[in-house]
Structures are given as structure tokens and as C-alpha cells.
Amino acid sequence: MKTLLIEKTRQTPYVDFNPENGLFKIGGRSIPENTFAFYESIIAWLDEYVKQPADTTRFEVHLEYFNTSSSKFILELFRKLRQIDQLPEKKLEVVWYYDKDDEEMMETGEDYRDLTEIPFDIREV
């Protein structure tokens, strides 16, 4: 598989998912009006990746803003990645970064952790 690379725009986040070393990063803003158009290709890529993931997949999330329709798709990304944790000898790590003043983003990380039951490392930056 090739690395999934998407440049950030004013309305959509950067995406850098490297299937070789398992380091996945997403960050910036996710506020498009049509979230499906943006996330469908990412979810399709993950569907392939989870069939043969790297030994450790480390998902680093550092979102500044996201709209409510993105929030459903972000949950979907976590649900896809959770499949990795159920495979023998494969590991999933999630790091949720939030800016120092952004208590809501910290709470949102906690909410995703509760909903997905994935162990999240929630870190202030």
C-alpha cells in the first residue's frame, strides 16, 4: 500500500498515514460542508490497511476544529482502527493532542475514548 497523503486546506485536515511504519497523523481543521466526500476515501484506505497492518499502528490526532458532521466520521476512523487491536500481535496506540486553552477538545478526546474503548493517551501541547 502507498502512504495516504492529503494536504491541509482551510476547511480540511492534513492526513499522513504511513502503512510501512504504522505512523498515522491527522491534524488541522475539519469543517467541510460535505464531510462524506472528504472521509470516504480515507475510510476505504483504512479498510484495506486493517487487513495487513504494521505491528504497531500509532494514530496521532491533533485537530484544531471540527464540525459536527466530521465528528461522526472521526468516530468511524477510530472504529476501523479498533479492528487492529483485535488481531494477534498487532498493537494500536492513539495519541489525542489538544491545545493548552482548549478544554472542549480535551473532553472530546475523553468522549471518543469512552465510545471506542480504545486506550487513548490525551496530551496537552
Binding site: T68, S69, S71, K72, D111, D114, L115
Partner: peptide
Amino acid sequence: YKNIMTDNGFTAKGGAGLG
């Protein structure tokens, strides 16, 4: 918010019902 977010699907108008 968490309850609605975990409901699958979107409203007829393409919203998440969360706004």
C-alpha cells in the same frame, strides 16, 4: 451529543443531527 453521534446515519438533509 455522544448518544446522537453513535446513532448511525445522517438526517435526510445530510446533517448529523448534532449542530
